[in-house]
Amino acid sequence: MKREVSINAAMALALLAVPIIALQMGQTFTITLATRIAILALAATGLNLALGLGGLVSFGHAAFFGIGGYAAGILSAHALSGEPMIFGFEGSQAMLTIWLVAAVIAGLVGLGIGAVSLRTSGVYFIMITLAFAQMIFYFAISWPAYGGEDGLSIAVRNKFPGLNTMRPMEFFLVAYGLLMLTLGLFGLIRSSRFGAALQAVRQNDVRVASIGIKPFPIRLTAFVLSAMITALAGALYADLNRFVSPSMFSWHMSGELIVLIILGGTGRLFGPLAGAALYVILEFVLGGITERWQFFLGLILLAVVLFARGGVMGLLAGKARHG
């Protein structure tokens, strides 16, 4: 347990140190890579709550990622054009407002999707979450108001009080700060009563019901919280690329989030960060060698699933122990 804490601290420091060094050396691209890692790790941390702690293999988390992205894109587009949205709301370029909207909408959509999908389990759950996400994907493609298939550009990154988010380093700090806060929250939830119930439901839901804890509300709450966190990451991702497109809703995205968690270590606090770092670095390094880098990613994933079930965190910090 002690070892895992120091490995986590080392990873948190490394993620902060790399962009600072890159800034000194004037390598903006490295800062962008680090930001991408932080944002993907945040999205995967959201999914880790449902999948890692609750055993809910959602193959539709791109829905929430995309909702976050479109919240950022649509709100800032209206703020810039001055064209009011519904209820006379004029949009916003404030990240904090955007995050709130993204989290609330994703939470509500998550409530709806969860309420239906969580009545099933196993492969049916996977398929139903996928189906919901695909529905939203096709809706985004066919909805012309916000770019349809072409997506929507964000002319200027949304604003965070006291920072100039157009500077890569300052935007990185926003993403990094939100990731660390969320990881702290994840850690608290995991060790709380709710976390205990959620993890027990994953291990044996019939038995948990037999002691008087209903699995369904526990799972639904986890699913909604998970959706909200992933939406925050989506909003940041849109700001990072200054572009939103329906591809944020695509099933590839849902798959990628699952891959990040498996690579990093399912249910581990820093698993999503380890997974996202490995993924982005592989993408960068292998992508420089061959266009078919995903083939090699596939091989690595296969190796992890066959030989290192605990992912990166399992290799570094050993098997997970619960109190």
Partner: peptide
């Protein structure tokens, strides 16, 4: 502990570590 928690009827607490 999980059974005690079930008996107390309070699984929706998110912040206090159970240990």
């Amino acid at each position: 502990m999980l059974a005690v928690q079930a008996r107390q009827g309070s699984s929706f607490r998110f912040f206090k570590p159970v240990m």
